[in-house]
Design a binder for these strands. Structure first.
Ligand SMILES: [Mn+2]
Ligand SMILES: [Mn+2]
Ligand SMILES: [Mn+2]
Ligand SMILES: [Mn+2]
Lengths: 150, 150
DNA sequence: TGTAAATTATAGCCAAGGCTGTAAAATAAA
DNA sequence: TTTATTTTACAGCCTTGGCTATAATTTACA
């Protein structure tokens, strides 16, 4: 019943871990926006902020404000009444984010999680997967797809 | 190179996924605080806000403010100049959070991730693991520990 | 005991990410 | 061509979670 640790990690090391988690949390919004905008353009031909709002489940006003910030940061371009577009930087971030999202969701499913749960949890987990962990996930998936005569 | 999807998920379903990720994000702070306070009490005998600040890597003022909020929410009790304590609700949340943290870190290590990376990524991932995914992780770990004559 | 150090608290500032309500502009329909 | 609808923009508000600087309190020590 008692699962408390005997010792604590080094103070600076632990602080660095929490800091990294906060950084990932702060980067999550930009990743979700560019990933969604890229997906909308690919499947619908355009990304209107109205649709971004509906799919994110937030108000239009929130989208407008966030899009303005991401535009200043050089990820998004807005053509008023013609939808949202991605800069090269935005495209790159979208491709990377989508890949990470897919790897996480596929790994969860490979571990026995149903698709809807996998997609839901992946939406949050994806932002906290570093390069090493991503590589480990990809390796597992590769092994599973090769030796699929399990 | 192109990894864009052919179709998008249902609009309401996708919005629900993002909403769940935002809810998890908002719950993360409370979980980290109670988990850390519980660990400090278990290993050091007490949890001073100064130490919480050092280990989280934030300022003492930030800790004071957040602790006040969590106290109003019924998770923490402060005894001025005698440290921080957890309510029953806080203890329960701490136990649950610590368990989830450990399961996530252990699973990452089982998948080939080194301990420091596992601990770092787990600090963020843990907040986005639902009941079903947690159960799947536990099952994998159980299987691995049983058939350890691999 | 009296002073220094450590701890806690408070005030005031900021950015991000939410919201509602209102206005404006463009597009679609009558 | 009006009119209605859709889309976008803006203003103002809120909470969370950061920060620095300053003050107060307690504990430790000389
Ligand atoms: Mn996401
Ligand atoms: Mn995603
Ligand atoms: Mn955490
Ligand atoms: Mn944790």
């Amino acid at each position: 019943m008692k699962n408390t640790p005997e010792t604590l990690p080094n103070e600076q090391a632990q602080a660095a871990r929490f800091q990294q988690a906060r950084d990932a949390r702060n980067a999550a919004t930009a990743q979700d926006y560019v990933e969604l905008i890229s997906d909308l353009i690919a499947t619908e031909g355009e990304a209107r902020s109205v649709d971004v709002a509906k799919r994110l489940g937030v108000s239009h006003a929130t989208v407008v404000k966030t899009v303005n910030r991401l535009q200043k940061e050089g990820l998004i371009i807005t053509k008023p009444y013609r939808g949202l577009f991605l800069t090269d930087m935005g495209e790159n971030l979208a491709t990377e984010s989508r890949h990470r999202h897919q790897v996480v969701a596929n790994l969860l499913m490979a571990l026995g999680v149903d698709e809807e749960t996998a997609q839901t949890d992946a939406e949050g987990i994806e932002h906290h997967i570093g390069a090493k962990t991503l590589a480990a996930f990809e390796l597992i998936l590769k092994k599973l797809s090769e030796g699929e005569a399990s």
